[in-house]
């Protein structure tokens, strides 16, 4: 695509005060998990023209995903999510370089997954994997944009120790996790877009509003609460000497 068409594609967003398309174009973001959260954040990061999206998921699309995972359609069922997501995102914006990783996140794979990224977006569906991602983001000093949903409720946060606390400052492993999680589309959509917005701000050098804070979104009562997440002096990860 020529330079002129590229300029036309982004012509409305470069009017936004403080916008820096070149910074966005040079950036790499990792999205781990291409479910409801990852679908929303990937679509909007691709649309905005991020330079490279590293997509990680090892699941196949199931029919029960289609109420919220807006990257996929009926014909996607049975296909790997990274492949279907890649197809959809390439169709949306061919200028974005896509890395499709059909990889299960664990303590062995996480190091390679985050390598070279400016920011990590959490699209995961369980707390154990989130703690692994949180730990690696702390080790590599890459900001971790947390997101999670359950029913009408969604959480989003931006963790970047030592400037902020980390996920392990907020909560401990061993919490109750129902299976399957009740979820419908707008809640992960809302939280995924908040994550994408915070990623875009970070990449462009604008202070993320969730830095050291947590957004608690309650879709049932339409409340958005921003609360402070202090560093935990007893955090087993980021306060360890």
């Amino acid at each position: 695509m020529g330079r002129e068409r590229e300029s036309e594609r982004y012509s409305r967003q470069i009017l936004v005060p403080g916008w820096n398309q070149e910074k966005l174009k040079r950036a790499t973001a990792l999205i781990v998990g291409l479910g409801g959260l990852g679908s929303a954040s990937a679509l909007y990061l691709a649309g905005a023209g991020i330079g490279r999206l590293r997509l990680c998921d090892c699941d196949k699309v199931e029919r029960s995903d289609l109420n919220r995972q807006v990257l996929y359609e009926e014909s996607s069922i049975g296909s790997f999510k990274v492949e279907e997501a890649g197809r959809r995102l390439a169709a949306l914006n061919p200028l974005v370089e896509l890395e499709k990783l059909n990889v299960f996140l664990d303590s062995h794979t996480v190091g390679e997954l985050v390598k070279g990224c400016q920011v990590i977006l959490d699209g995961l569906d369980n707390l154990e994997s989130r703690f692994i991602l949180n730990q690696e983001s702390f080790k590599k000093r890459i900001p971790y944009i947390y997101g999670a949903v359950h029913g009408w409720l969604g959480y989003a946060g931006f963790f970047h120790p030592p400037q902020t606390g980390c996920l392990a400052c907020l909560m401990q492993p061993g919490l109750s996790q129902p299976e399957p999680v009740p979820v419908f589309g707008t809640v992960p959509g809302m939280i995924g877009l908040v994550q994408a917005t915070e990623a875009i701000k970070w990449i462009q050098g604008i202070a993320p509003s969730l830095l050291g804070r947590l957004l608690i979104y309650d879709g049932l009562h339409l409340t958005f609460d921003l609360v402070n997440v202090d560093k935990n002096p007893a955090c087993p990860l980021c306060s360890k000497k």
Partner: peptide, 17 residues
């Protein structure tokens, strides 16, 4: 069961268990 509570809020601040 404390496993059903991730964290608590007091005013605008997170409080751990």
């Amino acid at each position: 069961n404390p496993a059903f509570v991730a964290f608590a809020l007091k005013g605008g601040d997170v409080k751990r268990l």
